[in-house]
């Protein structure tokens, strides 16, 4: 089963919708709650990264018998230094975004902790691609 979502950069009103939809869909299957929570956290953080940093993006979730595989692709400023971006507490979020309680520099570390496989690639000035796999 495949789910596709368009995510708009800067649209905090709709933010979280894609991850909620995926979680609701997964709930219908017999998946352990702790796995469901991992997926929800990883996808929410990935979605918020697109909203907070990119111009626009897509989320494609493939629900398979053995797990969920998600590809997030965005058009945006990209990430200059992926290693630094993965550090807890490092963030390039704007002041406005931080005042909402985002930009704590925990998004990517949260994704890593809650996924079984995470591949992050980025071209500065073009965009970012993130692949997440969580096994059931």
């Amino acid at each position: 089963m495949r789910m596709h979502f368009e995510i708009e950069g800067g649209d905090f009103t709709a933010a979280g919708r894609a991850s909620s939809e995926v979680k609701k869909t997964l709930k219908q299957f017999n998946i352990p709650p702790e796995v469901l929570r991992k997926v929800a956290i990883a996808l929410y953080e990935a979605e918020m990264n697109v909203v907070a940093h990119a111009w626009s993006g897509t989320m494609d979730a493939d629900i398979l018998p053995e797990g969920i595989h998600v590809v997030m692709e965005d058009k945006g400023p990209g990430i200059e230094d992926i290693e630094r971006a993965m550090e807890e507490g490092f963030s390039t979020a704007t002041e406005e975004v931080r005042q909402m309680g985002f930009g704590a520099g925990m998004g990517l570390p949260n994704i890593r902790k809650n996924s079984d496989r995470m591949v992050l690639t980025s071209t500065p000035g073009v965009g970012t691609r993130l692949e997440i796999t969580v096994a059931f």
Partner: peptide, 30 residues
């Protein structure tokens, strides 16, 4: 900090916050 809650809070917990914007709902629900 929303990501802090996402990362560290546990299911069933109460969440004390001063944030009142729409995104707190998604965090609490997820």
């Amino acid at each position: 900090l929303l990501s802090d809650v996402m990362g560290k809070a546990e299911a069933g917990m109460l969440w004390i916050t001063a944030q009142v914007h729409r995104n707190i709902v998604a965090v609490a629900s997820l």
